[in-house]
């Protein structure tokens, strides 16, 4: 399996994501090997990767609107083409915001309801286990992961939200440690506690929590690793 992690100017979780993916190589849970490479924002080619990850950070400083500049990078043309052909794309945090701007996912991000940056550990509930990214997980599984964002308040109009919900496109929701989804377990005001959604076809996932920061026991959780392993095992299935 080959994975590509895109570096935009201002990405700052690129190394962390590369590290988490590299640590999977030949581990017991993963069927086969996993090689990881960086993809450069100014390139038009993807080479032959099986999974593309858009990492977290502040692409172009996010001085305008999160992800607004990055979507115009040359590499994004290739990423859109890859996604349209059914290739697996995972956007984490800023990567999610870029996928929204690139119209690979529906909806938009608002600033957090607190109007402050939030860094914290959250629990998220798996809402749909029939996706490449939750392959091997069960609906209702609870994953512990960090969030760190200023704009993670997912928004879409009523029609769009109904469509997203009806299509089972919500993959993760913020919940409490018992798996209950409620106002108190919603860190940023996101509609329906949405923490991660996918496109209709199911090959593009955007999520605000950082799986790469939950990929080592010493960091407090290994749950994030499961998402990478799912995607790679799904490709291998």
């Amino acid at each position: 399996m080959k994975t590509g992690v895109v570096i935009f100017p201002g990405s700052n979780c690129d190394r962390d994501t590369h590290r988490a993916l590299s640590s999977l190589n030949n581990m017991v849970d993963l069927r086969g090997s996993c090689s990881v490479k960086f993809l450069w924002h100014n390139d038009y080619e993807l080479d032959d990767v099986d999974l593309i990850v858009l990492p977290g950070g502040f692409s172009y400083g996010d001085y305008l609107r999160t992800g607004a500049f990055a979507r115009f990078s040359p590499i994004m043309k290739a990423v859109v083409g890859f996604a349209n052909k059914g290739g697996l794309v995972l956007g984490i945090c800023n990567g999610f915001q870029i996928l929204l701007e690139a119209n690979l996912l529906p909806g938009a991000m608002l600033p957090n309801s607190s109007l402050r940056f939030i860094c914290d550990w959250v629990d998220i509930r798996v809402e749909n286990s029939d996706t490449p990214f939750t392959y091997g997980m069960k609906k209702g599984d609870i994953l512990k992961m960090p969030i760190a964002h200023f704009e993670g308040n997912f928004f879409a109009d009523d029609n769009k939200i109904n469509e997203i919900e009806n299509d089972n496109s919500v993959v993760f929701r913020y919940c409490n440690a018992r798996g209950e989804v409620n106002l108190k377990s919603n860190p940023n005001g996101s509609i329906n506690n949405i923490a991660g959604i996918m496109n209709k076809r199911g090959n593009v996932l955007g999520m605000m929590p950082h799986p790469e920061r939950a990929s080592d026991d010493i960091l407090g959780s290994n749950d994030g690793k499961g998402i990478f392993i799912s995607a790679l095992n799904w490709l291998k299935r």
């Binding site: 590290r19 939030i118 960091l219």
Partner: peptide, 16 residues
């Protein structure tokens, strides 16, 4: 205060 700081980027932070 610290909830407004990204204290985990770099995946080196062992203690919150």
């Amino acid at each position: 205060v610290y909830r407004q700081y990204d204290y985990q980027v770099g995946v080196r932070t062992i203690a919150i």
